[in-house]
Amino acid sequence: MSVAPPKVLLAMHVNGADVECAFSPSKTLLEVVREDLGLTGTKHGCEMGHCGACTVLVDGVPVLSCLELAVEAEGREVTTVEGLARGAEMHPVQAAFAECGAAQCGYCTPGFLMSAAALLDGADGRTLTQPEIAEALAGNLCRCTGYTKIIEAVALANGRMAEQSRG
């Protein structure tokens, strides 16, 4: 092995829990969540920022974990698809994806869910337009669905969340 710099020990906050993890400083957040934390729900389709499959939230903002250094996640809140549900209850967007058939092979799905969840959680009960939804998902590629049911699902979740916030 080439002379690798020593590992760093980092206190991270992932999916609401404090975790300590030691890893090489050249590891991306993608590699650390999948390989060191065992959170394989986050996928990868290119590792170059060309597909969006690895999208996670850092402090609630969708970013590409393939181009984030894990060391820079120190002190920030990282959310992966495994952290979307509230206990046993799925996030409304997860339920809507299942209902609408928005996941076909399911591989790009976690990335879409993260982009969508950030949009929906930030909408504060406001009804989103279809172009707004599409713009927010423009950094995620899907090869199965033609995006149609994905937009439907996000709109459905938006409607339900709006209803909930009113009720």
Binding site: T40, G41, K43, V81, A95, F97, A103, G106, Y107
Partner: peptide, 23 residues
């Protein structure tokens, strides 16, 4: 009948284990 696919729940929670997820 249009019902959620039986495997949709694994897909939307990140629980589906694809080949590269096998360790």
């Amino acid at each position: 009948k249009s019902t959620p696919k039986v495997n949709a729940f694994a897909a939307v929670t990140g629980a589906a284990i694809f080949a590269d997820d096998v360790v």
